[in-house]
Structure formats: C-alpha cells, structure tokens
Design a protein around this nucleic acid. Structure first.
Lengths: 222, 222
DNA sequence: TTAGATAAAATAATCGATTTTTTAATATAC
DNA sequence: GTATATTAAAAAATCGATTATTTTATCTAA
C-alpha cells in the first residue's frame, strides 16, 4: 500500500545539514570535540562533498567552529556564553512577543492554541523526547511568528538552538517540566487577551526559569 | 627587499568567502541574480569545491539564498526588508551602545578616537571608496565592541552587511557624507563623556539618516 | 633528559570527472 | 493554437582520487 520506494527528499547536503544540526543541539557530540570528517562520513553514510558543505553552513550558523587547515570543532560551552544567550533571548523574544501580540490575527490565535495543546499532550518521557523537542520549538516559534521582522525571528531561532545546547546537556530526565509547561498555556492566555505587558513579564520569567534549568545542567556537566 | 613570493594566506575557501562577501555587499551582483557557478569559478580563479563551500557559508549567513537542486541566488531587495533591517539596527545598536558606554575602558576610548580620526582623514572620493568602507565598518564595530555580548555583536555585524546592500546601491557618489561623518565624531564625544542617553539618541538619528540615504538609493534603483 | 630536527602517518583541502536534476528546445497530439 | 510529451543541453550535486598541511612518532645532539 504505502509507497514502497521513498526517494530521499532534498539534496544529500541539505539532509546531512538537518541531521547534524539536530545532533549538535541534542548534545550527541561533546563540547570542544573535534569532528573527524572521515568518521562522520561513515556514520552518516554520506559523501565528503555534501558533508563538508553542511559543516561549512553549520559553522556560519554558529553550531560549529572552523579553523583554517584544522577542520571543524563543536564550540565550547561557557557560563558567560550561557548568560549572554539568555540575556539576548530576554531582549529579543520579549520584543518579538510584544510585536506579535500587536499584529497577530485570528489564524495566529488558532495556531497558538493548537501548538500549546499538542505540546501538553505529548509526554516528554516514554521515548517521545525528540518529538517533544520539536513541538516545543514549534510552540515558541508560533508565539512570536507575527512579530513582523524576518531578522528578529532568525536571530531568535539561532539563540534557541544555542540555548538548547545547554538546556539539553546530560541525561534526558524531565526537570521542572510541569511548571514550564503551565507557563506555555498562560502565555497563550495572555496573548489571546492581548495583554502585551503581562505576556512579556511572563516570558521573562519563563526564560529565567529555563535559564536556571540550563545553568544547573551546565554546572553538573562541568 | 619586500618578500618576493607571498604565499596566499588562509585556505582557498576562506579567501573566496571574504572576496564574495565584499562583492555581494558592494553590489557587484544584481539583486535576484542567479550565480553561475562555472562563471564564478573562472572569474575568481578558484576550484569548484572551495567555491561551493564559500557559497554555502554565505547562504547560511544570509548574503545568498539557496534552493535545493537549483543553486544560489543573490537575495532580492525590498522596502519591507530595508525597514526591518533599519528597525533592528535601531534596537540592537542602541542596546549595544548603551552597554559599551557602561563597560568600555580607556583602551576603548583610544581605539574610538583613532577609528574616528582615520575615518575622517580618508576621503571617500579619489578612488578610496573601498578603504573608506572598511574604516567605516571598523568605526561602528569599535563603537559597540565592549558591549559584553558576543551574540549581539554578531547580529549587528550581520545587519550592517545587509543594510549596506541597500546603502551602496547604484553609483558611488558621496551623499550627505559630511553630516553623517560629523555624527561619528559627536558619537565619540558623547561616548567619552559616558552620556549613554544622548549617545543612543544620536545613534538613532544616525541610523535614521543612513536609512534615508539607503531608501533613496533603493527607490532610484528600482 | 630534553629541545629541536626529521620522518611517517593522519587529516584537511582541493581537484577533475561523473552522476543526477533541471531547464530549454523541439516535437507530437488534441 | 495550446497543451503535453520527448529529447538535448545546461547546470547542480556528488564522487573518488590527489595534493597540501598538520599532527604524531622517532631520532639526534647538546
């Protein structure tokens, strides 16, 4: 019944990019680790050219560092950088949320409700970790989507990816998930009420709490 | 006397990246233009692999767009995007300037004075256009350098590159250069006086004036 | 020993050619 | 004529092999 032969979608280069991006964010590689290109080639079963193109993009994006003639490394983590990222999230996501609340339409409201609902209904345990992460990212993207600035959204996305390198350090044990998830729903409520001020305050708190989680994991990790 | 044979610095890939970045910002390629890789290969005298790696990085950075199986294009320009970029510059550079004024030390003050002086002393006409651009970028980088956030600096740099695609459209005639250059010096003054509020106000005005220049060029261009 | 030179191995970067996909040109049916 | 199919040309993506550079191991002289 189901389409027996699935032709791979996209180019080899774009697929390995997506895969590596996820793996870098989820902590599959150790911070500071040097990437052995030939090993990657085997592990991911891709050719050298598409692999190098993906690595170059990831370096430009900030999920890898590159030094001439000595390949690619996973960027080190630091308390200072975590603070920087969290601070920037506060500024940029706060700004974006206020603007989204000012401009978002009825379709946005519907998307928000849907995204929050799916997020709550997916148990983070039970081997659904990666799915939960997807839904979580999607929720936060949806929240700020109608802010009106392509560049702001781009920067926020980038910061999320960086932040998650800290938040997802170590074993996949649920932390204060419940509390954070409640905040997701409260954020939706306030957004629907168009209460920009309160929403921003809650977003600040949400980022602060996430920061505490990330920091704890970072410190345990080190 | 002078070192007769200069070995090329960096990898072929990193050199072509730098060159293309400059050329994309300076408007050497038309907006929306499709890049013919084989032509580039000849024009810049580089191999296919380093060239593609550079193009991939530029796409991740936002100076090119990439569509699977159909290569690279120079991103289109739009009034909306120009407004977006300028708005983001207002927010981010304002933020960065305030923080820089709070944290910058004596060395920073010296760097600032030097950067502003060199900028004024380089005539934008007389075939020094590219040199002036370099000094101008450097001045603005210096101004916000001690803001304390690596990510903020990174985003600002990216926005500058994007903004300059608009500002540098069309022939290289000096516009209201004098007025803008005066502002550079006033910015230094206010920074040295640690007057964050006034400095930010002036920076806002500076970006607004630059925006007017960029918009005029964009409209003439279209 | 140990700092520095030398050789060998490993890795990164690049090249030239091949394969795949898209685009353009031409033909064929309605 | 217009739409669809077929073929030819062009371009993008990928592969396999080569070259250049760095890293590691080994040697030698103070």
């Amino acid at each position: 019944m189901n389409n027996p032969i699935q032709p791979p979608v996209g180019t080899s280069s774009s697929r390995i990019y997506d895969t590596l991006r996820k793996d870098l964010i989820s902590g599959r590689f150790a911070a500071g680790e040097k990437l052995a290109i030939n090993t990657l080639k085997e592990q991911y079963q891709v050719g050298l050219s598409p692999l190098r193109e993906a690595l170059n993009k990831l370096a430009a994006y900030g999920l890898l560092t590159q030094e001439n003639q000595r390949g690619f490394r996973v960027p080190k983590l630091s308390r200072n950088e975590l603070d920087d990222i969290a601070q920037m999230r506060l500024e940029l996501e706060g700004m974006a949320l206020e603007r989204a609340i000012a401009h978002g339409d009825a379709l946005w409201e519907a998307d928000l409700l849907a995204a929050a609902h799916r997020l709550r209904r997916t148990d983070v345990t039970l081997d659904k970790g990666e799915e939960w992460e997807q839904l979580h990212s999607h929720f936060h993207r949806t929240l700020v989507a109608p802010c009106g600035s392509v560049w702001l959204l781009r920067f926020i996305e980038q910061l999320h990816d960086q932040f998650d390198r800290y938040r997802r350090l170590g074993p996949k044990i649920p932390t204060i998930r419940q509390e954070l998830d409640d905040q997701h729903h409260k954020l939706v409520e306030l957004a629907l009420q168009r209460d920009a001020k309160a929403a921003r305050a809650l977003m600040d708190d949400h980022i602060h709490k996430s920061y505490d989680v990330a920091l704890a994991r970072y410190q345990k990790h080190a």
